[in-house]
Design a protein around this nucleic acid. Structure first.
Lengths: 229, 229
DNA sequence: TATCCTAAAAGTGTTGACAATATGACATGC
DNA sequence: GCATGTCATATTGTCAACACTTTTAGGATA
């Protein structure tokens, strides 16, 4: 059994990451180094390293000699991210269709089946659906076998996507439609039809993007009250 | 005049970045913290921050309690990167065609004109051509106005691309063809034809990728002698 | 000679203190 | 009243020393 050798900076980074994603540390909030260090019971050295990684993920922004703040979420940035997701996950879907093993494909199908069951049970609901969606996309991303692509999507970009999910609390208001689209993508992958998988994935994400655009007009700036601490 | 307020970690990060990209610090080489700190006349604190950023760019890899090494370049990873570039720069070209200002378009055309002149003067040569190519793609990337996309491409991915250019010392052996493709892309952008610009850019990068594939068969593992220090 | 063990050396992770910079309150002049 | 300058405070940037882990070198044993 390989005991995960890790470092203080690593552990604290994950803790703060979770707090930022879930909103325990709100958007735009200042990160005070001595305070954060005291809270987590470490010194400022490792804490600053952790903050460096959060900055690299673009969850916080730092200004020299001034300090770090959690990013401000906005519809504009969210749309930017979905443009990128459309391109990159389209690519991932194509590669996945071309390189996924039979075992991986079976596992992906099993995941969809369980989603389908849960959707029937719960009348299409929220938290599971959200994380389930993340799971599905994760599988395909990793199925691409392109390590750089995996790092970009699953490592960095998805933390932001999850942050939006939590804090804009938009539960894909079309779960059955999304599941159907997942099903189509899965089928294309099963048939090793890379071109189709890519096209379906891009349309799937573009649909989600249009969904965001539509909700922008109804409900402007959902979390505006959380501007500053 | 705005004096750029910066930090030691920033400056040293750029210095080491240059050394890694150009090969002054070779592939796979170990980065010794006390030694590097002494060389740059700083303490290990800021140095470790700088190394954290290089790790985020994936120019070095770190193992807890063991240390950091410069990444090993390989054709496989290079091909992975070109797959990603094809997707993302295709997107960038489309967005650039849709959003670039008239001024930006004129400037882009001027850049190409100067490239054309230099190509005639020098019979299609190397260093300028390489950095010129980088310039052209930079312009389009920034023209996309998608900040996240800009950061991903220009901030991180291109450092690796430059590193490969230096160390595999492959000077696009088809400069006139590349320039022609640049010209086509530029025209599409000038006409605000996003769809065409995207398609041309993807084909352009795919051509470069095929070029790499071809040279793989002739010249295997160009810098293999630089394995370890 | 090869293998294992042990101890010294080197290197990384972490800490607390110091230096440099920014923030905010207050006073002063217009 | 408003802008500007000054000072105290808080916060960030940097450093040097300490603690722990890994690596290396040497010798003992088979």
């Amino acid at each position: 059994m390989q005991e995960e050798t890790t470092t203080l900076a690593n552990k604290v980074c994950e803790l703060i990451l979770k707090d930022i994603v879930t909103g325990a540390i709100g958007q735009g909030q200042k990160l005070n180094e001595p305070e954060l260090a005291r809270i987590h019971g470490i010194s400022r050295g490792p804490l600053r390293e952790a903050m460096g990684r959060l900055e690299a993920m673009r969850l916080i922004t730092r200004v020299p000699n001034v300090g770090a703040r959690v990013v401000q979420l906005s519809y504009d940035v969210l749309l930017e991210i979905y443009q990128i997701r459309e391109s990159l996950e389209g690519l991932a879907a194509r590669l996945a269709a071309e390189t996924m093993t039979g075992e991986e494909k079976l596992s992906l199908r099993a995941l969809l089946t369980s989603h389908h069951k849960h959707l029937l049970d719960t009348q299409g609901q929220s938290y599971f659906q959200q994380e389930g969606d993340v799971d599905f996309h994760y599988r395909i991303i990793h199925g691409s076998k392109n390590q750089r692509l995996i790092d970009m999507l699953a490592g960095d970009l998805y933390q932001l996507v999850r942050m939006y999910r939590y804090q804009f609390s938009w539960s894909s208001n079309r779960p059955q439609q999304a599941l159907k689209e997942h099903d189509q993508i899965c089928s294309a992958i099963e048939e090793s039809d890379g071109e189709l998988a890519e096209w379906l994935m891009k349309r799937h994400i573009n649909n989600a993007r249009n969904n965001i655009l539509a909700s922008m007009n109804h409900q402007k700036h959902p979390n505006l009250e959380k501007y500053h601490e």
